[in-house]
Amino acid sequence: MLKFTAEHEWLKIDGGVATVGITTHAAEQLGDLVFVELPEVGSSFDKGGDAATVESVKAASDVYSPLDGEIVEVNQAIVDDPSLVNSDPQGAGWFFKLKLKNTADAEALLDEAAYKELVG
């Protein structure tokens, strides 16, 4: 199941675990990333909590936890090479895996068509 948030994150949900990243639209808006800071494995976030930070030359931006859950894995590859987020935001540029507190909460997020409408 692929879902999106209005804060420009995507979630690929499989067996109660969501792989989370930022959308192609968000990556284009941010521009070339030069720094990524990811959460620690084992840390828990409420929906909307500041889970990660990305920085372009110009500015820092927060990446929010799209739902309540616990971080079970992070993508060290984007810390080592932040440009991966720009080149493949919805693939190799994923950020973290979130074990969802309530998988059913994901139903309320945007589907792909609704997100595309949002960003025009």
Partner: peptide
């Protein structure tokens, strides 16, 4: 603030 090439 930037053109299509981007700040970097």
């Amino acid at each position: 603030v930037q053109f299509p090439a981007g700040v970097l």
